[in-house]
Amino acid sequence: MAGIHAARGSSRVALISCGEFPQLDEDDRLLIAPLAERGVRAEPVVWDAPGTDWTDYRLAVLRSTWDYAPRRDEFVDWAATVPNLANPADVVRWNTDKRYLDTLSAAGAPTVPTTWVEPGDSTWRPPDHGEYVIKPAVSAGSRDTGRYDLADSDHRRLAAEHVRRLAGAGRLTMVQPYLAAVDTVGETALLYFAGPAGLELSHAIRKGPLLTGPDLGVDGLFRPETIEPRTPSLEEAAIARKVLALLPHGYADRLLYARVDLIPGPDGRPVLVELELTEPSLFLAHGRDAPARLADAIVARLA
């Protein structure tokens, strides 16, 4: 209760979004009422709105900043100027480039195998069989992402064109085997919020498959998703905790939230496909009392 009393009547918190969602995503708006109940005034703020004085806020919480990917350098430079940013700016810099998967894999985390195609590389050729996902290392909302069955000659051609397009635009490209279990089991996202003992599991959801074929572009900032609550298996929870424990530079101790996305690999064991520490959907509507738990984490951070 001490943290709640410390916040009453004295705290403004920025919930940071993008120009397409100036009043926040619908799910993020679920956080405003429980914060108000705890004496915290939460205000939606667009991250690149001119003239914003971030020192007006005791805490600035990154939420739906989903337009950052084409301006990633600008975004991470901006994050470094914001005092009391959650999650912190050095985490943002590290997590907005998916090469973090290599760091975690080297540390012992089970991750989806990834081949990297450097910007400007014109030598990559697709394998002659198998299903693969191609996407840029800096992306959000599954934009510029496609699924290719490389036994199909048209898919092989489109895959090569996709890589050339990204590499030609100076973007690092990821080529990963498609994990077929996403079509049946789905993807499990485990949501963690800061608590007295560190990051604590709040809830989990199941995401259905998103990718149906080659990249043909996305209208808007993200692909529509099929979401439902899920109870993670003991193995999924253990893998997620292992991933968080392997974070470098003491990041885990400074996180307000984290999302760990897992899909069963070919042997049925969960592997990490993404670790979302910057602007993940937190699916607050799908976890009982999840908005209240995140509000408590914010109040504790203020105190």
Rank of each mutant, 00 (worst) to 15 (best):
Leu284Trp: 03
Leu282Cys: 11
Thr212Phe: 12
Leu255Trp: 07
Leu59Pro: 04
Leu201Gln: 11
Glu74Val: 12
Glu131Trp: 01
Gly208Gln: 13
Asp67Pro: 02
Gly265Ala: 01
Asp289Asn: 11
Ser122Lys: 08
Arg125Gly: 01
Glu236Asp: 05
Glu276Ser: 14
Pro177Lys: 06
Ala285Met: 08
Tyr100Asn: 07
Val185Tyr: 11
Arg164Lys: 12
Cys18Phe: 03
Val46His: 08
Glu228Phe: 01
Leu85Lys: 09
Arg293Thr: 08
Glu225Cys: 08
Ala106Trp: 06
Arg147Asp: 01
Ala295Ile: 05
Arg58His: 11
Ala151Lys: 05
Asn87Arg: 10
Leu179Lys: 03
Asp183Glu: 15
Glu43Gly: 03
Leu31Thr: 09
Glu276Asp: 12
His249Asp: 15
Asp56Pro: 00
Gly186Phe: 00
Asn84Pro: 03
Gly19Trp: 09
Trp47Leu: 15
Ser142Asp: 00
Leu166Lys: 06
Gly195His: 09
Val163Lys: 01
Leu216Glu: 15
Ser281Asp: 13
Arg72Thr: 12
Trp66Arg: 08
Leu30Gly: 09
Arg171Thr: 07
Ala285Lys: 14
Thr103Lys: 03
Asp28Trp: 07
Val40Glu: 01
Val61Tyr: 04
Val61Ile: 14
Ala237Trp: 00
Val182Arg: 06
Gly287Ile: 00
Pro88Thr: 05
Val299Thr: 14
His129Glu: 14
Arg223Glu: 13
Arg71Pro: 04
Glu161Phe: 01
Glu131Lys: 05
Val185Trp: 02
Ala204Met: 06
Val46Phe: 08
Val185Gln: 07
Val163His: 04
Arg125Phe: 02
Pro224Gly: 04
Arg259Trp: 08
Glu37Leu: 10
Ala169Tyr: 05
Val40Trp: 05
Tyr251Ser: 06
Asp128Ser: 14
Asp261Cys: 08
Thr231Trp: 08
Pro34Met: 13
Leu294Trp: 09
Ala86Leu: 12
Ile16Asn: 00
Ala204Gln: 02
Ala106Met: 11
Val92Arg: 01
Arg164Ser: 15
Thr114Ala: 08
Arg58Phe: 00
Met174Pro: 07
Ile239Thr: 15
His203Met: 09
Arg8Cys: 11
Asp128Thr: 14
Arg41Trp: 06
Ala300Pro: 01
Pro248His: 08
Leu275Asp: 02
Ser153Arg: 12
Pro214Gly: 15
Leu31Pro: 10
Ala42Asp: 12
Ala89Gln: 04
Ala6Met: 11
Ile134Met: 01
Val185Ala: 15
Pro70Trp: 07
Ala42Glu: 05
Leu221Val: 10
Glu118Trp: 05
Lys98Leu: 13
Ala297His: 03
Tyr178Gly: 08
Leu179Ala: 07
Arg12Asn: 14
Pro44Cys: 13
His203Ala: 10
Thr231Arg: 13
His129Gln: 14
Val218Met: 10
Ala292Val: 10
Val40Ile: 11
Arg93Trp: 10
Ala159Gly: 00
Leu15Asn: 04
Ala238Phe: 04
Asp215Ser: 13
Gln176Lys: 13
Ile263Trp: 03
Thr96Cys: 15
Arg171Trp: 10
Thr111Gly: 00
Thr226Gly: 10
Ile239Phe: 00
Pro44Trp: 03
Asp149Phe: 02
